[in-house]
């Protein structure tokens, strides 16, 4: 009986430790590991975004790790992080990749036209809803990005 109680108490304590550890686990600010989806060119991603209904694209991409090859258009940064504006090849499509502040120096060092491979978590696609929308471009955005290759 005493043995069973000891084992039970041990399991409860272990459960509590695991629970507290999981609760305190910090958010991963830089994406790592294997991608869920890989795009070899930016056109593949843009074409996919344009051809699919946004709800279908979002259901398959939001929260997923996406690896894609792209060309830097420009970079910017502020206190909370930095952003690469990716050359989408289309005036009506904006692609942004956001990085944690710890990577800002690396991001700001990138020159326009540099080719890069990024691994990011996808925020999804947003298309204009009305013809009179001020936000008249399609936006595909990514966050917690990491640069896995640059040329």
């Amino acid at each position: 009986m005493k043995r069973i109680l000891t084992i039970l108490l041990g399991i409860i304590i272990l459960g509590l430790i695991i629970g507290i550890y999981m609760y305190q686990n910090p958010t991963e600010l830089v994406t790592s590991g294997e991608p869920d989806i890989k795009y070899n060119t930016i056109n593949e991603l843009v074409d996919k975004g344009n051809s699919e209904i946004d709800s279908v694209f979002n259901a398959n991409h939001v929260g997923k790790k996406i690896q894609f090859h792209a060309m830097v258009e420009s970079t910017t940064s502020n206190e909370s992080g930095s952003t690469i504006f990716v050359n989408s090849g289309s005036e009506n499509t904006i692609i942004t990749a956001a990085f944690d502040a710890s990577l800002s120096n690396e991001v700001l060092d990138l020159k326009p036209s540099t080719e890069i491979d990024l691994l990011c978590v996808c925020n999804g696609i947003a298309k204009p809803e009305d013809p009179d929308d001020l936000l008249s471009e399609t936006t595909i955005s990514f966050n917690r990005c990491s640069i896995i290759n640059k040329n």
Binding site: G63, A98, D133, L135, N143
Partner: peptide
């Protein structure tokens, strides 16, 4: 910090990606 926004002639529009 990935919010898209536009302003023109008293009109405003914001789009906030939840995953960001």
């Amino acid at each position: 910090n990935q919010v898209t926004a536009a302003y023109s002639l008293k009109k405003l529009q914001f789009r906030v990606p939840i995953n960001a």
